[in-house]
Simulated assay, not measured.
Amino acid sequence: MSSSERIPFPFKIIPLEDEDQKKIAKDFVGNPTGLASCNHWGFKLSATVTEQELEDLYNHPLDPRDVWVVTPPKCGTTWTQEMVWLIANDLDYEGAKTPIMPDRYSFIDFAALSDKEFEAKFAAAAAKEGEPPRSGPMDMASLANRPSPRFVKSHLPFSLNNPRLLDTCKVVYVARNPKDACVSFFHHMRLIRLHDFLGDLELFMDYFIKGQVVEAPFIEHMIEAWNLRHHPNLCFLFYEDMKKDLRAQIRKVSKFLGKDYSEEQVDKLAEHLHIDNFKKNPWVNADHMKDGKIMHTDRGSFIRKGKTGDWKNHFTPEMNEKFDKWMAEKMKGTDLTFVQELEKQD
């Protein structure tokens, strides 16, 4: 098969049961039609996603010069994107003074996770206020007009991304302890109006465990990548390792991308990426979306705590027991393990 030949999408889109869809629509205002399972282990996207969209993503154009960041949501994605972009672009801090998305990265699966009915209402409301129409700057189309090397963000698992991806492009993948990811995703789902979760953390955790949250389940996503970790074009990182020794991970990614930086340069990048500075960086903290239309203005910020072990401040003993039981079942047969807290972190 030639590199230009389209590959048929191998999975069927399967909507959830009606009762589950009704519950999701009630608790996630931004997903009024619910979710659909889109691969062999039930990865969830909007119920309005089409097979054509998924086939287009499965055949996403690839260029050997491009660099991808692939993660489940809330696993340090934006943090890693900034690190990767600066390393690949010779530490161009001036060039990094522009929104990380959509200016520097394409978020290719954005359209597939958003409910088309909700998006249409969102666009109509904006038009009524006299705003210019949105051209989908974070979706797949934005990639075509960018010069290579291009930078791509995807929350899709490898089984839904182009199967030629790892043989063509460099990919940095980040995994994170699912407990912290769950807490972070809960806050994110409350913040972003395209999801707009109305319940509490305990209810959200139940959805998370059932894999009934958009771009979940997480553990299968990470196991799938873990099993590919020895591929020469894959750099597999753990969020907790970045928290424990960011400089070591900067060196690891630099070597992976064919770059060599001095200790002083590594120190400067680590300082730039330190969570205290990162939270204040308007180019990564989605400041351009803080007008209340895309994000609620009273539910926190896009970049939150960036801590390992924060789940301990949120889970009750009963929630933790339930989560541990679920994780133990999911992790059977894999040597992938997660660090749940750190004694010391930056």
Rank of each mutant, 00 (worst) to 15 (best):
A125V: 12
M138N: 14
R193H: 12
K170G: 02
F338P: 01
K22Q: 12
S3N: 15
A127K: 09
Q249T: 08
A216R: 02
D287I: 12
N59L: 06
N177M: 11
E263A: 04
P102H: 10
M140H: 09
K252S: 08
E17V: 15
S37I: 07
S159K: 09
V84I: 08
E131Y: 14
F315E: 00
Q21G: 08
M1G: 11
W311C: 00
L269P: 00
V70K: 00
P8T: 06
K312Q: 07
D291Y: 08
E343Y: 14
G130M: 09
M138F: 15
S3Y: 15
K153G: 01
Y261D: 01
K312Y: 12
Q249C: 07
F218W: 15
T308F: 02
E329K: 12
P8L: 11
R251L: 07
A225L: 08
L228V: 10
E318I: 11
R6N: 13
E264N: 12
D103T: 07
H40Y: 15
D56W: 11
D260G: 09
G306F: 02
P32N: 07
Y93P: 02
Q345G: 07
D115N: 08
L198S: 12
K290N: 09
T337L: 12
F185S: 00
E341C: 03
A25T: 06
G199M: 02
A144M: 14
K279E: 06
